[in-house]
Design a protein around this nucleic acid. Structure first.
Lengths: 256, 256
DNA sequence: AAATGTGATCTAGATCACATTT
DNA sequence: AAATGTGATCTAGATCACATTT
């Protein structure tokens, strides 16, 4: 198996998850969605998390490989901050990105619970802060703490649910719609408000190659699709960053 | 939303999951894989399962819709026997089959745990025997019985793991390889032995349309791909059933 | 009648080769 | 130098229309 991802200019950039500048005039910064709130409650008290057995926070530079596909699952990670990608390379050399993970998501739990190898490689995209537990401790925490056990059930369900959306998206929608959906998700992520009928400048935390891997196309084709969206005035490109002119049209177009 | 699947000749056929006749001469019927054995243990004692709160076994005819996408998740199902498909129709009218579920798999748990709508429609392909619990009872069982809770964690992980394989397959492999993989899985399912270098006659429990939906292509294209496999002598078609001449070449070809 | 097959044609997306940016 | 863009060409797979099986 070839070496997974080679490092890149991201190294020097540091955090680029947040929007750098919203061109938005209106400004009802409403509450996050209810579900996210629920998860916040689950992990609110750091002291508890410590007591439960998670190791201390560790920070990682961008482009660091946290765990690797097909290696035995020895640990579970909890993302405290930052953004990671879950990717897999197949024999033919093609790489897919199965999804991105951020704050309050766990990584590696299914493989640990099944005693199998990790199905994906997890790589940091930005500076990340993570906590980990060994496989044994994780299982121990599950068997001794019913609350923790329930939390993990919810989190695994959320993983499954998200994975399912990705799967359906890949199976049913043409690449242009998958791209619209990806951009819509990133925009929604950045905005975190419910009135999205606005221009938003987003700093996509992914290289074009990576965006292409997320929607399972080649970078060349991605480039053409972005041109198309620009022609249709849905987006405007401004060097590294990207301005979404019409969030609604993105959402409508994406077929989900 | 249009009505989901229309019934079919399957109605009269009854069980067609099992292989109808193995042309196999050698016969080391070895034990199932270790993992399946583990799950058998988990659900071995029916009495326990009863005590836990699952409802009584109910049987369903083929082509029965058990639960429907985008409806509130009110129950969780446990498959005791038979085969079901999990499918989703998107706005464009296209339908994907996300996967098949059989004995000892649960259906609907992630949606219940998240308090969301089901992401898929579950439809029986053969005669099925299922047990169910209401969402409330399910959550109650989880909070009162740590063993049950742990079982569910393992089963959800398995769901996630399988879903991930499907996702990678869709994202990385060309249709011919996805078809090979599907056929290999069905063959392995039917054989349940580790020496697969044999001719096997399999009764695929799916219509061509459904096989096409599983690998995200049109039925026409599927037909051409099957022709191709037949030209390459990997399979032989014999009316309804299908003879795999070379399991090894199926496996090698499938890219995973 | 529904499912399957097949031919002709079209198109989304891949591949390759090279230019331009950062 | 790596990332991005773009033009020319190819091909896997879709679409449509109709024939053949079950």
């Amino acid at each position: 198996m070839r070496h997974l991802s080679n490092c890149c200019r991201r190294q020097e950039e540091g955090h680029n998850v947040q929007a750098r500048g919203n061109i938005v005039t209106s400004s009802s910064r409403k509450a996050r969605r209810a579900f996210d709130g629920f998860l916040d409650i689950l992990f609110r008290r750091k002291a508890d998390t410590n007591a439960l057995g998670w190791g201390p926070s560790r920070t990682y530079l961008p482009c660091t490989e946290i765990l690797r596909q097909d290696t035995p699952a020895k640990a579970v990670f909890l993302v405290e901050s930052g953004l990671l990608k879950l990717s897999r390379i197949v024999d033919t050399g093609r790489e897919v990105i199965a999804g991105l993970r951020r704050q309050h998501w766990i990584i590696g739990a299914p493989a640990v619970l099944l005693g199998k190898a990790y199905s994906f490689t997890a790589t940091t995209l930005t500076h990340c802060s993570l906590r980990s537990v060994s496989a044994e401790t994780f299982v121990n925490m599950l068997s001794t703490d019913p609350n923790f056990s329930f939390q993990m059930l919810v989190m695994l369900s959320r993983e499954y649910y998200k994975q399912s959306e990705t799967l359906v998206c890949l199976g049913c929608l043409p690449a242009i719609d998958r791209l619209k959906q990806l951009l819509y998700e990133i925009t929604a992520e950045v905005q975190r408000s419910s009135d999205l009928h606005q221009r938003v400048k987003i700093q996509v935390p992914l290289k074009h190659l990576e965006m292409a891997q997320m929607i399972a196309i080649t970078p060349e084709h991605l480039c053409r699709l972005l041109n198309k969206l620009e022609e249709e005035k849905i987006i405007t490109r401004d060097k590294g960053s990207l301005i979404v002119n019409d969030t609604q049209r993105l959402k409508q177009g994406c077929g989900l």
